[in-house]
Design a binder for these strands. Structure first.
Length: 491
RNA sequence: GGUUCCUUGGCCGAGUGGCUAGGCACCGGUCUGCAAAACCGUCUACGGCGGUUCGAAUCCGCCAGGAACCUCCA
């Protein structure tokens, strides 16, 4: 099975043909969230980007094992917290058990991702559930001489590693620059070098999240969990590792070093990184305090939001930009996505209303190929969406009788939209899908509009406009046709 | 300061050495009782200055502005 899928490999800094190690199986690992706060718009980017990759690989016929972790331990804070774990810090703040915090935010994360129609990964491992694997990996690194113990902590010896391997190959840095530019931080004295990173960190007496280890009670370093868990579920070597660009250094760089130091070879064949969502040109982020949570976007409750934006609008907005480019948040951009999506969904639903002709007056034959080509070119969703809009044009033109389409072409349009818009892009009709009451209320609206038709026949414009205006105010869009009416509910 | 990257029309965003996506907005038209939707048309850009080339927005150099990473981060 050979598909011409090209993906950009951050490690090689170019697009490469994707050839899985064990086709038709594909191993995919993506860095998930640290669950100490609500997911914001920035978190939606990798979730959706790699959801598309997951869906597209599946569409191509691969059997994908998609692993996306939950980080619930080990994030050191090197500022005023003196090495206190983020989860533990928040826990004390709110007087909750650490695992209660983890559960709370994990649930909310899943809820937001469900709303965005992001498929669940095959495995969602927690770092806290893989302490044994992480300790084992530290031992291997120690045995191979690339780490050292100091005051109950274990550090990775970057300089020693760099003598025989290249530390910095992913991020394009060299060790001399790093030694010169790394900021002086507290708690550095127990390390041989400022750029050494923790594999295991000794827990201070008040530190709640702690596990026993050969080096005393403590907790694993942040970079280790992904190395240990990806190895456990995907093997020593696997196909794709994804995450946000801000993780390239140090997180992914350290992962490479850990794998090589433990196993003697790199684990990941293709590194993929999504770019940031910006707000006023600046990265949206927790530490910058300029983020908008997904829940706020869905409800419109944030001072920067002019209105609520539905999960599908957010999804479509993200897909209208290529995943490797920055994407700037603005109400205007979101609103245009909302309208564009509405137009596309409506066209999709109208395909079945196109009257079939004996032959087509236009050639829609290459639409599917164009969509495929776009996706094969490093998941170029904006191009693929542009192609679908070409299809929208055909659908509308056929409905208004300006072009004719054969039954075969109508079927092909239906199939292309089903495949790309629904199956691969994961767009759904939020009003109809999963709404058990839809049929009933839709009939109720029909009854009202039939009354309006009667009023129109009687030239009772007052009644007719009253019904239309009040429905419009409720979010319905009423369209008069030559012989009847159509409506839809904008959400 | 170091490393990497970006700058496209009113807005968002693709793309690329010659054939100049797409969405949204605006304006004009068709349709309509009036609208809405749809359709047709208009507007047509690649930060600045040089260079390479028959030809550059696309390659190279310089300048300006911006960003990411170097510290937790999607």
């Amino acid at each position: 099975m050979l598909h011409p899928l090209q993906i950009y490999n951050t490690l090689k800094r170019k697009k490469e043909q994707f050839v899985p190690l064990h086709a038709p199986l594909v191993g995919l690992y993506v860095c998930g969230p640290t669950v100490y706060g609500d997911a914001h718009l920035g978190h939606a980017r990798p979730a959706i980007t790699f959801d598309i990759l997951f869906r597209y690989l599946t569409h191509l016929g691969y059997k994908v094992r998609y692993v996306r972790n939950i980080t619930d331990v080990g994030h050191l804070e090197n500022d005023a917290d003196h090495g206190e774990d983020k989860i533990a810090k928040k826990a004390r703040l709110e007087q909750l058990e650490p695992m209660e915090v983890v559960q709370f935010y994990s649930n909310r994360y899943h809820k937001a991702l469900d709303a965005l129609n992001v498929l669940s990964p095959s495995i969602e491992p927690h770092a806290s559930g893989h302490i044994i694997e992480q300790i084992r990996m530290i031992k291997e690194i120690l045995d191979n001489g690339f780490a050292y113990e100091s005051e109950g902590s274990v550090y990775f010896d970057v300089e020693k590693y760099n003598r025989s391997h290249a530390y910095g190959i992913l991020s394009g840095r060299n060790i001399e620059d790093m030694l010169n530019t790394t900021r002086e931080l507290e708690g550095q004295e127990e390390k041989r070098n400022s750029i050494d990173f923790a594999l295991w960190k000794k827990a201070s007496p008040e530190h709640i999240m702690r596990w026993p280890s050969p080096w005393g009670d403590g907790f694993p370093g942040w970079h280790l969990e992904c190395s240990a868990m990806s190895r456990k579920y995907l093997g020593d070597t696997f196909d794709i590792h994804g995450g946000g660009m801000d993780l390239i250094f140090p997180h992914h760089e350290c992962e490479i070093a850990q794998s090589v130091a433990a196993e003697g070879h790199e684990a990941v064949r293709y590194w993929m990184h999504n770019n940031m969502i910006t707000i006023n040109g600046q990265k949206m982020g927790k530490s910058l305090g300029n983020f908008i949570t997904l829940e706020e976007l869905f409800s419109g409750s944030h001072h920067l939001l002019q209105q609520a934006y539905s999960p599908m609008t957010i999804r479509f907005f993200i897909l209208q930009a290529h995943y490797r480019g920055t994407l700037d948040f603005s109400n205007e951009a979101l609103q245009s996505s909302e309208k564009g999506l509405s137009k596309m969904l409506e066209a999709f639903e109208n395909i079945s209303k196109i009257p079939a002709s004996s032959q087509s007056s236009v050639n829609i034959g290459d639409l599917r190929k164009k969509c495929n080509d776009a996706m094969n070119d490093d998941l170029n969703t904006p191009i693929a969406i542009a192609c679908l809009f070409e299809g929208v044009k055909y659908i509308n033109a056929a409905l208004s009788g300006e072009i004719t389409l054969s039954a075969k072409d109508i079927e092909e349009l239906q199939s292309v939209f089903q495949t790309f818009l629904i199956d691969i892009f994961g767009i759904k009709n939020e009003v109809k899908d999963g709404n058990a009451a839809y049929e009933s209320f839709s009939k109720a609206v029909d009854i009202l509009l039939e009354l309006r038709m009667q009023a129109k026949v009687n030239k009772d414009w007052e009644t007719s406009d009253k019904i239309r205006n009040e429905l419009t105010a409720l979010g319905f869009e009423i369209k008069d046709k030559k012989d009847g009416f159509e409506w839809k509910l904008n959400k």
